[in-house]
Computed example of a mutant assay.
Amino acid sequence: MIRLIEPYITFEEVEAELKEIFSSGMLTKGPFVRTFTDHISQYVSAKHAFLTTSATTALSMCLKILNVQPGDEVIVSDFSFPATVNVIEDLGAKPVFADVDLETFNMLPEELESQITSRTKAVLFVDALGNPTGITNIKHICEEYSLPLVDDAAV
């Protein structure tokens, strides 16, 4: 077995909390979720944090919040999981693929910039294999063109 990511914690470190959560009978709502979202929003300096059932649901929610409509274009990395493109197509929008760096597998800034048109509604950056290398340059381009940036950091 080849592990892509080594966990930073052990089961013993979270065992008591997991027992408490399972004993409460509230796996998707309740005080544990509120505490977790409060901690996440503080950690990333965000006003709010929301939990979803999957990364696909989170991406879909982001694009809906950005009011992506049929005919809009969303620029996305050409190296990703199929769901990344599915959420774009489910809204009737057109995925526009940007090539990736062959060392990081992340979107190349020059590829992003060459794909931007008047129909571009958003950019969906994929942290390939949990690696966000290059996102700072992508963010600067998005700011320059006033485009919202969605970071798909699912691993």
Rank of each mutant, 00 (worst) to 15 (best):
V100T: 15
D99C: 02
S114D: 12
E113C: 02
T104A: 09
L91Y: 15
I88K: 04
L112R: 12
F97C: 06
M107A: 07
D101A: 07
I116A: 06
G92W: 05
S114K: 15
V87G: 06
V100Q: 03
P95E: 09
V100F: 12
L102F: 11
E111A: 12
V96S: 11
V87E: 04
L102Q: 13
L112S: 04
K94P: 02
E110P: 00
D90I: 01
I88F: 08
T117M: 12
D99W: 00
E110R: 00
V87I: 13
E113R: 06
G92V: 09
P109A: 09
E113V: 01
K94H: 10
V96I: 15
V87S: 07
E89F: 01
P95G: 13
T117D: 10
A98Q: 00
T104Q: 11
E103Y: 07
D90Y: 11
G92A: 05
I88V: 14
G92P: 14
P95V: 08
E110Q: 11
N106T: 15
P95I: 02
V100W: 05
T117S: 14
Q115G: 06
D99A: 12
L102C: 03
V87L: 09
E103T: 09
T117I: 10
L108V: 03
E89K: 15
A93D: 15
F105L: 15
E103K: 13
F97Q: 10
V100I: 14
E89M: 12
E89N: 07
Q115H: 08
T104V: 07
L102P: 03
D99Y: 02
D101Q: 02
V87M: 08
A98F: 02
T104D: 11
S114T: 05
S114Q: 15
T104C: 09
E103F: 10
A98C: 04
V96F: 11
L112E: 02
N106Q: 13
F97S: 03
E89Q: 15
V87P: 04
I116G: 11
L102M: 14
L108I: 14
T117H: 08
S114N: 13
E110M: 02
V96Q: 13
P95A: 04
F97H: 14
A98T: 09
D101M: 05
Q115S: 09
I88S: 07
I88R: 11
D101Y: 09
D101T: 00
E110A: 02
A93S: 12
E89C: 04
N106K: 04
V100R: 08
S114L: 05
D90S: 07
A93M: 13
L102R: 15
V87T: 03
N106M: 04
E111D: 10
D99V: 04
A93R: 10
D101C: 01
L91D: 05
V96R: 13
T117V: 11
E103Q: 03
D101R: 00
D99K: 13
Q115E: 14
F97E: 08
D90P: 06
Q115D: 01
E89L: 04
D99T: 13
P109S: 08
I88W: 04
L108W: 01
V96P: 01
K94E: 15
P109C: 06
P109L: 06
E103S: 05
F105E: 05
T117F: 06
F97P: 09
M107L: 12
E111G: 01
L112A: 04
V100A: 07
A98K: 03
D99H: 14
I88A: 10
G92N: 06
